[in-house]
Design a protein around this nucleic acid. Structure first.
Length: 590
RNA sequence: GCGUUCGUGGCUCAGCUGGAUAGAGCGGCGGACUUCGAAUCCGUAGGUCGCAGGUUCGAAUCCUGCCGGACGCACCA
């Protein structure tokens, strides 16, 4: 909503500059060459709400920027009839004080009307957007890297939806290949019939245990990896025993993984399985060969020349005619588009695969699929530990379930140490919501495309710039509004007078609430949830200070109480909507 | 070697579609709970924005080169 006000001022000021130029006999085209007027926020609130730097016009108008500012200010007052209190010239900057009271009144109406949908836009209305994320292997449980992937995928999906898109979340399960056979083989050798039930162990962890077991066995037994290869061959030939072991262990893993998804609030609209898709793409390649997109080497392998995109060449079909990772992905993309004709597809996959996706998109484009230009690889960065990479063979991989459990325990301890068990309702539920808030906020606050360092000590901290800090603001407001419910009957005949909200913090809060929609669309455009996490932190910090310095339910006059409560109600709705988009559970009490 | 990408206080990160003294959190030091929830707030110390050039009225932000790190460059997925 703030955007409209910005536009208004921008146009009004631009018009005056244009007229000044015209009066001095300067060609309008030259004014346009300078570019659009820039709107900024002054570094300090006392300087106004909006800032328009007028440096760029100095050369054109042959005058010092500050003089131009004066000139424009005079005209705004005399010709446009703008109240002179709204205009604050500051050297080369023309600053403006917007009408925050009327903004607050509009906001209040809008928020009451839209509620959970406040901040939503129509930017992507009518678009069908598919988001692929998570994509676990079925040979081990989820780890920290998946958690980042999941958090990003989930948040992006919600952001796209908030901007009006129809979203389908898809997961591709990597349930096939030598790595899967490795855990199967180890289980066959050392499993002794252990099941998740007999040993009371989560299925994915059980399978993961045998994957690790294979690695140690491989050191003693030279033929281990050959045996795994042989098993894969059997699997592909449809060997009954291998297949039944495979489906049993797959189920164990998937049950476990799904349990983790449930705990972390992750869900999908559609699951794809590599075992169903790995042969896909071959026919397409054959057709592409006829069309001349690909070429065949004497040994029978099929290639594509990537010279046009400054890369080498790449195999798309083995000499024995079987599919590769790339072939398969060509097939799945096409299959997906047939099943659900998306306008765009976003792959949330680690940045190590940038090359793969560059090639994939190019191939699809060459094959003539018009939608290929709307494929996007959201290449998120690695999660490292303070002393380096996570390495499975060094046992430094942070397990997803372990991490969540320990965060939950810590949250619970915190509740108990504050003697709040009695007030929070279901303590286990609240603890895990706090853990989730901490985790998702931690994972999303770093720009998705950058590598990040996961510091266990910091991630478990609940104070400072953390998820629980944000949740705490929601809880305090909720608690305050409960008290308000008890007293509000005394305020029935008082209406919301926004002009009473004159404190700097109040102005800032109103502007911040009003800018939410702009950030929701920006975050979606840039596929960047951290825009929302930063926003949440900033607005929470603002409120926290405000709340500390000023009384709300005990403000000086009933009118002021009403006005402040109205403001706080708006804030709570915005917080809730923003929490949702970044996967932070809202808590009435914590 | 080639390609992609990152380099901001002790640590972890914002800011990067150029603009007014570079922002936070953690950690350090010092304050604030008989008052709407102290998982909070306030103050303070701490930065040649990797280095060197360039473009510009103006560069952490754009361009070039260099240095350093990460990732990729399989008939693995």
């Amino acid at each position: 909503m703030l955007q409209q006000m910005k536009e208004y001022w921008k146009e009004t000021i631009s018009a005056q500059i244009l007229e000044i130029a015209r009066e001095s006999g300067i060609d309008e085209a030259l004014v346009k060459d300078v570019g659009e007027l820039v709107v900024q926020t002054p570094p300090k609130p006392e300087l106004g709400d909006l800032a328009f730097p007028l440096f760029p016009y100095a050369k054109l108008l042959r005058s010092a920027p500050a003089k131009i500012v004066q000139l424009v200010c005079d005209r705004l007052i005399t010709k446009v009839g703008i109240d002179k209190d709204r205009i604050l010239p500051a050297g080369p900057y023309l600053n403006v004080k917007i009408d925050v009271a009327s903004l607050a009144i509009d906001l209040d109406k809008e928020i009451q009307d839209k509620k959970d949908r406040y901040g939503h836009t129509t930017l992507l209305k009518g678009k069908k957007m598919m988001v692929e994320f998570s994509c676990p292997n079925t040979n081990k449980p989820l780890h920290l890297g998946h958690l980042r992937n999941d958090a990003i995928g989930m948040s992006i999906s919600r952001l796209l939806e908030a901007n009006g898109a129809e979203v389908q979340k898809v997961n591709l399960i990597n349930n096939r290949g030598v790595h899967i056979c490795k855990s199967m083989l180890a289980y066959q050798k050392f499993g002794n019939g252990e099941t998740p039930e007999t040993h009371n162990i989560k299925g994915d962890h059980l399978v993961g245990k045998y994957y690790v077991r294979f690695a140690t066995w491989e050191k003693e037994e030279k033929e281990a990896s050959e045996q795994a290869q042989a098993m894969l061959k059997k699997w592909e030939d449809g060997d009954k025993d291998v297949l039944s072991l495979w489906s049993l262990m797959n189920k164990w893993t998937l049950d476990g993984v799904n349990e983790t998804y449930q705990k972390t609030g992750i869900s999908f609209d559609e699951y794809y399985y590599e075992s169903d898709t790995y042969k896909l793409g071959r026919d397409i390649v054959h057709k592409g060969l006829e069309k001349g997109v690909f070429y065949k080497e004497p040994d029978g392998s099929v290639w594509i020349d990537l010279e046009p995109i400054n890369l080498d060449k790449k195999v798309v079909l083995r000499k024995d005619g079987t599919s590769l990772y790339l072939t398969q992905d060509i097939g799945t993309a096409i299959q997906r588009h047939e099943k659900w004709p998306f306008d765009s597809l976003i792959f949330v996959v680690a940045s190590e695969q940038s090359y793969h996706f560059k090639v994939l998109f190019y191939v699809l484009e060459q094959l003539g699929y018009s939608w290929a230009k709307n494929l996007f690889h959201l290449a998120y960065g690695m999660v490292n530990l303070p002393d380096g990479k996570m390495k499975s063979r060094e046992g430094t991989v942070v397990d997803a379930d372990d991490l969540i459990d320990s965060l939950t325990q810590l949250a619970k301890g915190e509740i108990i140490s504050k003697s709040r068990e009695g007030m929070v309702g279901d303590i286990d539920e609240v603890s895990s919501d706090i853990a989730l808030g901490a985790l998702n906020y931690y994972l999303l606050q770093t720009t998705a495309t950058k590598d990040m360092i996961f510091n266990p000590d910091e991630s478990i901290s609940f104070s400072g710039n953390t998820g629980p800090y944000l949740q705490y603001m929601g809880a305090r407001i909720s608690s305050m509004l409960k008290k308000w419910e008890e007293m509000k009957n005394n305020f029935n005949d008082i209406s919301f007078d926004a002009s009473l909200l004159t404190l700097q913090d109040e102005r800032e809060l109103i502007k911040s609430i009003a800018s939410f929609d702009t950030l929701v669309s920006l975050a979606a455009k840039e596929y960047n949830p951290s825009i929302i996490t930063s926003y949440l932190y900033e607005i929470s910090r603002l409120f926290s200070r405000y709340y500390h310095d000023h009384q709300i339910l005990k403000a000086q006059t009933p009118e002021l109480i009403k006005a402040r409560v109205t403001l706080v109600k708006m804030l709570l709705q915005v917080l809730k909507n923003a929490y949702y988009v970044v996967g932070i559970p809202f808590l009435e009490s914590m």
